[in-house]
Design a protein around this nucleic acid. Structure first.
Lengths: 203, 203
DNA sequence: ACAGTCATGGCACGTCGTGTCATCACTATG
DNA sequence: CATAGTGATGACACGACGTGCCATGACTGT
């Protein structure tokens, strides 16, 4: 019963477990209901049964509540690349590793959650900025991973950006199609299109 | 009615002309002296001889003062692509058009200004976010331009991202080398490296 | 000379994000 | 069982950001 939940939260408010998750859920719901800008932090914390100050202990700013868990992406990327066969060149590694890596990163989040989250982000330029930064951090981790594998600076940077760009476009297409071809398949399709485009001879 | 336009432009302000430019100069100087976060808007306006309220009439927020003039980039991109020979494919257009287009966009700004501006942006994550957004807007304009030339949706998106990525990396390298090989040459080098990377066969 | 236009000045206000200290539940230790 | 320690939360103050609103004064056109 909603009544019981609310009562328990309001009564035992202090130290109820899952504060972070409650904040994420309340924030996403409110952003969908009334928009990101129109939602204040006190509104989020009130729905989660917490105080404003606590919100900023869990998230650096109001936008970060939509990007929880992504801070581990760079180190996961680094581990993934360190474990890959050293013989693989940059483009080979992207071709063979991007799809499984992306599948690992996105596992555990439902398609419905991803779609609702994207709707909020796409509606707010400030949130799109933050999302671009997240991808940028991922690109930096990729670049470092390539360099650790002996790839020269420029090639590492290019390969990292190509990988992230492909992933971003593939995820967009995947969500546009409501997940119909699964993400790995969409990534490989996008990679194929990228190859075809860049291999076009210029007469 | 050309004389009317000129008159309006020459009358830039209530007391002293060039309010916008003074704000940009004061902001860049202060950001370099004491950092972006440590600089308040009242400090900028005090140095420029204006008030806080006036700052936000010229710039949407504190970060935008470093990106003045870039709001015209998307439409300039659109015009550039509309004027290009329709026979050129996406990759041909990038190969032949990116360098001159970039040269046009960056003309009139001194290398010293660009280097100091980059130092400020690189030191502040919030400013890097905004810069990523500017490139994203440029990419959207490019994508629309490709689609207007009859390119399919996915290829247009890929080509736009490749062009922007190449430009970004080339500008970074160009500034790293203090402008030694000029920007068009650096862009073409970067494009060559991109071609070489993506054309690598995967055994 | 007169009225209109427009950038600026000035003020109030809500929101964001942080510093600081107090409070309370849980835990370890004796 | 008592006590101190730990760690998350509550509560308050505060500066900075950004906006709405109206007043002011210089310039423009008639």
């Amino acid at each position: 019963m909603t009544w019981r939940v609310i009562t328990r939260i309001s009564r035992m408010g202090r130290w109820q477990p899952g504060a972070r998750e409650r904040l994420e859920q309340a924030a996403l719901d409110l952003f969908l209901e009334q928009g990101f800008t129109e939602t204040t932090v006190p509104q989020i914390t009130a729905r989660a049964g917490l105080t404003t100050r606590t919100f900023f202990r869990h998230f650096a700013d109001k936008r970060e509540v939509l990007f929880a868990g992504e801070e581990s992406v760079p180190e996961r990327v680094a581990r993934f690349m360190a474990e890959a066969p050293p013989s693989l060149g940059p483009m080979e590694l992207i071709t063979k590793g991007l799809a499984p890596a992306a599948a690992e990163i996105f596992e555990g989040r439902s398609l419905d959650y991803l779609l609702r989250r994207r709707a909020v982000i796409d509606a707010e330029p400030a949130l799109r900025e933050r999302e671009l930064r997240k991808f940028s951090l991922m690109s930096e981790a990729l670049e470092q991973g390539f360099r650790d594998r002996g790839v020269d600076h420029l090639t590492a940077r290019l390969a990292a950006e190509i990988a992230v760009t492909t992933l971003r476009i593939a995820v967009t297409r995947w969500l546009d199609q409501h997940g119909d071809p699964d993400l790995p398949a969409t990534i490989n399709q996008t990679l194929a299109a990228m190859r075809h485009l860049t291999n076009t001879p210029s007469p």
